[in-house]
Design a protein around this nucleic acid. Structure first.
Lengths: 133, 133
DNA sequence: TAAATATGCTACCTTGATGTAGCATTTAAC
DNA sequence: GTTAAATGCTACATCAAGGTAGCATATTTA
């Protein structure tokens, strides 16, 4: 019960970058700083660029920076980019619709839990990471 | 962001069986009824037996039935058996402890969400599936 | 006792996520 | 212009989860 590694990485990268927005970050530097495998991170960064979160600058002294301001990026958008936008509260039993006519209480409980998560992802902006204690 | 297929199957199987407790279910019958691959389900059933949820009867007219009453089985125990009991709210960024000194607000939000799920799993009994509309 | 129908076990196959390697391309510094 | 340092791309390697196959073992029924 967790996000995929890729999603975790994406959140880690963008979360870190939002603390140093307006700076240009190279894949190498991010890899060392964030303990993400260099080549995998590099590919992920270009994916995040194609997804519209970042823009890349090629050539010497190149790197990645935000294409949109962090306060216009919601966590739900990042998760959607890495694992697809599937916010439907799916049946915890794996059925599309409940197969147990008398078991839907489970669904209600599950939907509540699921909604808590989705709501959090939809309401939290990347820039919210900065506002803290 | 979901349970593993195996966990899903386990919940599906035990959930269904709890609606027909005291009956003996063969792997074949459950496979057809619940759309779980026959051989995979069979292996999973013996795992669930070894985990103490079910007891198996071999030979003709054999099958599986509950070894513990469904009202003594919590969803958290099922999930723990299939994906390991890891109820620690892990860092959403993938670090053991927060790597962003100024980003812990994220953690608070995440922990809330995580706790909602864990609490639900700990409080819901298999037998609760029966009590419904 | 023999046949039918269960589970138990173990080895293998498949697939998708993750990770690696190498080369092409772009740009700045000298 | 040449070199160094960056991204872009694509093919391949690895690993764990999910799924399949076949035979051994147990038990009931006839």
């Amino acid at each position: 019960m967790n996000f995929s590694k890729t999603t975790e990485y994406a959140l880690r990268i963008l979360g870190y970058m939002s603390l140093h927005a307006n700076e240009l970050h190279s894949a190498d530097a991010l890899s060392e700083k964030l303990s993400v495998p260099k080549k995998y991170l590099q590919r992920l960064l270009t994916d995040l660029s194609k997804a519209g979160f970042l823009k890349s600058t090629r050539g010497r002294n190149g790197g990645f920076s935000f294409d949109r301001s962090p306060d216009q990026i919601f966590l739900s958008q990042i998760v959607a980019a890495t694992e697809g936008a599937d916010w439907e509260p799916k049946c915890i039993f794996g059925f599309g619709t409940c197969a147990f006519d008398n078991a839907c209480a489970m669904h209600d409980i599950w939907c509540d839990t699921h909604n808590t998560l989705v709501t959090m992802l939809h309401n939290t902006r990347l820039s919210d990471l900065k506002k803290t204690k």
